[in-house]
Structure formats: structure tokens, C-alpha cells
Design a protein around this nucleic acid. Structure first.
Lengths: 222, 222
DNA sequence: GTCTATACGGGGATAGAC
DNA sequence: GTCTATCCCCGTATAGAC
């Protein structure tokens, strides 16, 4: 049930993995077609050219994050819970699509987000906006410290897992696991740590004591 | 005083900028030679091949970070001061070498740190080690919360500015500045924010009240 | 829808003159 | 030390048969 019988989807899947792994310029259409098990020329039947294929790959990947995120985050009501849910979303999404962090980062540094500008604008209006709102709501309730700028704080919240995903080989070396990167278990535990770290930073020092973090047994990453 | 009269250095400088901007595979030796104002064949006089040139570029860039970092960090004695100094180092170094974040990230995602493994091992034994030690010292002194794993905490500390440098186009869109990324002023202020955010997270809740953060007027980034 | 065959430019690298 | 000239492979994209 995991075979993609139709050629268009097969091309999209293969292109996504290759673009993520080697970047847009270094990925050849011959490699994409070969990985999809079809002929080079067929690519030009389904897509206008290499750029058009790339654009479609990006739309699918960002679109998936936004759709899934909006679904997941609507549930959380308490600000602390919402921050945890946000980081859990990052961790789960990248656990399920392990190459997408690279796809996203490459688009940022290769093209300055040129091809993903539309998707990022949507992301700004949905997930990022929602995280900022949650922080501001926590500040208004006296749960979170009021002296933090919500947008900067939101970036700090997101940065931990995002950077961990990108810098895996370096982190692997730093923690003694080698350039293959940390284990799946370590990766999951880092997400828990990141949530706690962010909440320690966000909490007002005179706030009512938070209930202990629920130890989520769910393990979602690779 | 900014001309690089000798061809070897000119090639290294040009290669660094191009490798950072487009990646190893997408950077052509013809482009490097042209940017350095010399002939393609001369590259093979000074370096064995494209890979050898790349390796040398990485060694110079990582080596600079380590050398500069060890110098700067030896000064700070107080753990809080040391954490601030660490983030200030990141900000200053990347402010002075604005393309190196991309160079580093590309090496991580393009080659899994294969070419930089040696430099990263040095980094692990110097700067990263030093940051972990500082956190542990703060924990032993009761200044920092003891329930954090020092290595994970160190990664959280580093991640904020690192991610901000990499995700500039996305952050620009998120904060309404557009895909060109945040302004130099915003970038500098984010480093201050990141230091405070990290210290809020690190501080033991029953610790003696920290002195107010010194507002560093020094502006070091682009 | 899917393939074969091919045009055409640009890539890394070397030989060898000066 | 620095250049010209060149080799050969591989990249994108298209024409057109089936």
C-alpha cells in the first residue's frame, strides 16, 4: 500500500527526496526519472520543466505542514499546552518526513525563499501567527513573562527543534554519537527538552506553579 | 587595504563566497577563477582539485571560529556572563562573515559533515565543551537549574542565533520585513533576546536575583 | 502516456606554451 | 606562476515514433 502507481506522484515523490538530499541545482532530471522508474521525457509531460516540478514539490510539502499543523493546534487551549503541542508538531512532522527539513532549508539558502514565498506567507498567517497569539495570551494571563517580545520568543521556541534537525551531523559529533547524528531516541527526547527549555524561559517568575509536564509516551520520529 | 594581491588567497576568498552562496556542486571552477580574476588552470596549480580547494576553505572558516572563540571566551568567569559571551560570539562572528552560516549549513546537509568532521571534532572539544562546562558550573553553583542536561541545554543556547541566521528569509516574512530578511538592527537585537531567553530558561527559580543584563551598545552584525 | 534519439551548452580537468 | 586550447562527460530540453 505504499507504491505510487501513477507516474506523476512517483515523480513528485522521487523529486522531493532528491531535491532535499542534493538541492535543486545538483539534482538532475535524469536522476529523478530514474528514481521514479520512468523516462526522462515523461517529466516534461506532467510538468512544464524542472522549476515547475520543484515548485509543486514545495507546495505539497509546505501545504502538508500547514494543514496538519492547523488541525493539531486548534485543540490546545492552555498556553503551556499549546507551546508543547507546537514543538510536538515540529518533531512529529519532521519525524514522519525526515528529509523535509533539508528541503525547506535548501529553499531558504539556495533561493532566498523565492519559490516558497507564497507558502511562507501562508505559514506566517497561520502557524506562526497562532504561536505568537498563544504566547501573548499567556502573557495577558500572567502565566508568561510580559517583558518578552512574542514574535522573537516564537522564533526562539521554533529554533531549537528546527536547528537540531538541520545540524544533526554536527550535534552527533558534539554528543559523541558521530557524524551520523543522534539516535531517534535522543531526537525525540530533545523535543521534550526543547519544550521544557522554552517554557522555563517563557514562564513568569511569580506565576502559579505549573503542573508537571505530562510524559508523553508517544514516539513519532525516525 | 582590502585587495588580496596573491592569487592563492584570492581563489580561497572567491571560493568561500561562491561555495557558501551556491553550494559545492553548483559552484563551477570557472566561476571561482573568474571571481578571483585568474585563469581556471591556475586553480590546479595551487590546489589538487575542486575538493581540495573546498577542504581548505572549510578549514580556514572553522579554524577562524575556533581561534576567535577560544580567545573571547577565556575572559568570562561568571556562568551568566559566559553564556552571554557565547551568544555574542556567534552574533559577532556571523556578522563579520555573513556567508559562513550558509557555508557551514551546506556542509552539514550536503555532505553530512564529511569534509568538516575534523574541524567539528575540534569544535566539540573546544567551544562546545566550554559551553557545557559553563552550564555545569552554573548548576553546581546553584545559579542554573540542575534538572537540565547540560549538552542539550548548550544546543538550545546555540540554536537560536544559528537558526535565525539560516532562516533569515522565512523570518523576514514572518515578522513582516519580506523575504530579504530582518534588518541588521533586528538581527542584533535578536541576539540580545536570545541571550535573555536562554538565561531565563537556565536560571534556577530559587536562585539569587540576577543583576540586570548590561545593555551592550556594541553592534557587530551586518 | 510513454518511450528513443538527439541537439546543444556547460562542467571538471589536463597538456603544454610562455 | 600564469595562460591558451582542448578533451570528454553530463546537464536540460525537445522532436517525434509508438
Amino acid at each position: 500500500m505504499d507504491a505510487a502507481p501513477d507516474s506523476r506522484t512517483g515523480l513528485l515523490d522521487a523529486a522531493e527526496v532528491l531535491f532535499a538530499g542534493r538541492g535543486f541545482r545538483s539534482t538532475t532530471i535524469k536522476a529523478i526519472a530514474a528514481a521514479a522508474g520512468v523516462n526522462t521525457a515523461l517529466l516534461y509531460y506532467y510538468f512544464p520543466d524542472k522549476q515547475g516540478l520543484y515548485r509543486t514539490v514545495l507546495e505539497r510539502a509546505f501545504g502538508g505542514l500547514i494543514t496538519e499543523g492547523e488541525g493539531r493546534l486548534a485543540a490546545a487551549s492552555d498556553p503551556e499546552e499549546a507551546v508543547r503541542a507546537f514543538i510536538a508538531l515540529q518533531s512529529a512532522y519532521f519525524g514522519r518526513h525526515p528529509h523535509r527539513p533539508h528541503l525547506f532549508v535548501r529553499e531558504l539558502i539556495d533561493h532566498g525563499a523565492e519559490y516558497a514565498a507564497g507558502q511562507l506567507t501562508r505559514l506566517a498567517a497561520t502557524l506562526f501567527r497562532r504561536l505568537c497569539d498563544v504566547i501573548e495570551r499567556g502573557q495577558a494571563a500572567g502565566q508568561f513573562r510580559a517583558d518578552l517580545d512574542a514574535r522573537r520568543a516564537a522564533i526562539s521556541v521554533v529554533s531549537q527543534v528546527a536547528w537540531m534537525q538541520v545540524a544533526r551531523p554536527a550535534i552527533g559529533i558534539f554528543i559523541g554519537a558521530g557524524p551520523g547524528g543522534p539516535s531517534a531516541r535522543w531526537t525525540d527526547e530533545f523535543a521534550d527538552h526543547a519544550a521544557e527549555f522554552a517554557l522555563f524561559a517563557l514562564r513568569a517568575t511569580d506565576a502559579p506553579p505549573p503542573r508537571p509536564a505530562p510524559r508523553r509516551p508517544v514516539r513519532t520520529s525516525r
